[in-house]
Design a protein around this nucleic acid. Structure first.
Ligand code: SF4
Ligand code: SF4
Lengths: 151, 151
DNA sequence: TTTATTTAAGATAAATTTGTCTTAAATAAA
DNA sequence: TTTATTTAAGACAAATTTATCTTAAATAAA
């Protein structure tokens, strides 16, 4: 079987998460950033990333200004409230933690799939992790040099 | 953003898992099953599923016999040893629990991505869940009617 | 007002995954 | 031995995801 190199999130979501974290880290310094600067710091395809960040602008997670001296930023007062689950849900939807691990139409605790008891915990843990991880916290780690987005 | 309906595993992996569970449930009854019977019971595309099960045959997880009265089965003595992690690894590889949640080349605890401490736990939990879930146990649940593979 | 810069939007293309179809090989029964 | 049945293998096609390219709209400075 040709390996699939399956990851937790889609590429779109990966780029979206990294972009948000970088934008947030710069917003902390009162800097708006252009998409070119973003992709330089997260090593992602520019046009594709622009489209994803654009979607997050529509969702009111990121703010944008067009024209010279424009760019993307995240509202200071909003930053502490935005969590990973907002990003992931905006891009990949909620199926990874709400949908069926085996792709059944819906999950029914009465007669679940054989994985039921095993799966529910992993999904719930993933959801609570995403739910409790704020963009602020991630951006702090990046800004302080404790973490990196490129390798 | 056009939602991606991302699931934990690929379609190939989903079909593979369901097929294995059904085949195992029938092997417990000393029955070999043809691919047509398998897909009827798991609601998956026949040719695609056949290819995936074929890959598992190559990996020595499933046994097969060609010709009339042939079909697929799982060795009785092997069944208790095969776990979900074998199936997932054979089809999707190990990237979902070993790879980087944000798609970085490799995970370095010295300077990890900002999600590091959050991610490692979820991945480890998923891995240990897959590792500790045997095909035997899943097939038992299906055979006893406690669980279902279709909906 | 004009020009340069930047995001917004959407068409198009490439890559990957999912799915089908055809032919070959193996096996068992007649 | 011949025929029917089944898995094996690989070519091909469709659908989805990823990525690029082009044009429009907004904004600010000159
Ligand atoms: S617990 Fe089982 S039936 Fe329910 S969604 Fe998860 S895999 Fe599907
Ligand atoms: S912990 Fe962070 S750096 Fe390490 S693999 Fe996971 S996402 Fe990547």
């Amino acid at each position: 079987m040709a390996y699939q190199n399956l990851t937790m999130f889609s590429k779109a979501c990966e780029y979206g998460i990294k972009a948000i974290i970088y934008i947030a880290s710069q917003s902390m310094l009162e800097r708006r950033v252009k998409i070119g600067e973003v992709v330089e710091h997260i090593d992602s395809p520019e046009a594709f990333t622009a489209k994803i960040v654009g979607a997050l602008v529509k969702e009111n997670i990121v703010q944008s200004v067009t024209g010279p001296y424009g760019g993307f930023y995240i509202d200071k007062y909003q930053m502490g409230q935005i969590t990973m689950i907002d990003i992931v849900t905006a891009i990949d939807g909620d199926s990874i933690f709400n949908g069926c691990g085996l792709g059944l139409k819906d999950c029914d605790a009465e007669q679940p799939c054989p994985m039921h008891s095993k799966f529910v915990k992993v999904r719930a843990d993933l959801k609570s992790m995403l739910n409790s991880t704020s963009i602020f916290e991630l951006a702090e780690g990046l800004k302080s040099g404790k973490s990196t987005l490129m390798r």
